[in-house]
Amino acid sequence: MSSEPLPHLRRLESEAIFIMREVVATFERPVMLYSIGKDSSVMLHLARKAFHPAPPPFPFLHIDTTWKFREMIRFRDDAARRYRLDLRVHTNRDGLARGINPFDHGPLYTQVMKTEALKQALAAGRYDAAFGGARRDEEKSRAKERVFSFRSASQAWDPKNQRPELWSLYNTRVRPGESIRVFPLSNWTELDIWQYILAEDIPIVPLYFAAERPVVERGGQLIMVDDERMRLLPGEVPQKRRIRFRTLGCYPLTAAVESDAATLPEIVAEMFAARTSEREGRLIDHDEAGAMEMKKREGYF
């Protein structure tokens, strides 16, 4: 019997598996939010491990704003087929009908096509627990987020009204209508995610790897022109640059970085030399401090 403690990635893996099993054992209608990003890929992988040899005993929910990169959608459908997932895709039809889009509507777009859409889908599915891939190291206001984050019947998050979490004794009790968002990757850092993807050889969307792609430079950000809906400003001409993404979302709102990292080890190496946080590429966070906290109070993941 060795007395060496488990290496840190194994400990994080084991903890995430424990959390997922706890949810399945105590909730009636769990669901896993599947955003197709690297964190979702890791979550899916962990879910397969947690319930092996059974398949993950819950559906996977994707909130499709209709503005995701095409490669993401292809990857999503492949993954669903390969692992025989019960994939459920939801779009805010009403927002779509109103023509809400990322070019004209800024914060309203996020509110309607992401936050509202998520609330609609969670309410319609009567899910009492929803797994999300958020990590505490992503942003300051997340540092105090619980692993089991309690939401009122209106799906609001009240930072003052969260339950203390001691040891690994999670209080999983909710009343009808109330729900819990669960973050199995709470204790992971971005670097852990990449190292784990490397160690476990987890498939991720090819957009994470550097390649020549058509982009425009806008306000110092590189935005990829993923389809003909991209609105070019006067004088803007898409040009091929060698880029990759550190985080994935709606293509008009996701900035790329110039990079030569075309393999996983190269990405990890680049991470160590990195000088900007991944959120830099998420245009959603570029408003004033406390923005994320506001979004969360409203029900954003």
Partner: peptide, 27 residues
């Protein structure tokens, strides 16, 4: 490390926050 808006305004920390860092020997 002073995270939540309310706390920042009051200049106090009122909850447990978790932070992460690593050296090449330990996480």
């Amino acid at each position: 490390v002073d995270g939540l808006q309310a706390e920042r305004e009051q200049g106090i920390t009122i909850d447990v926050a978790y932070r992460y860092f690593a050296t090449d020997r330990r996480r």
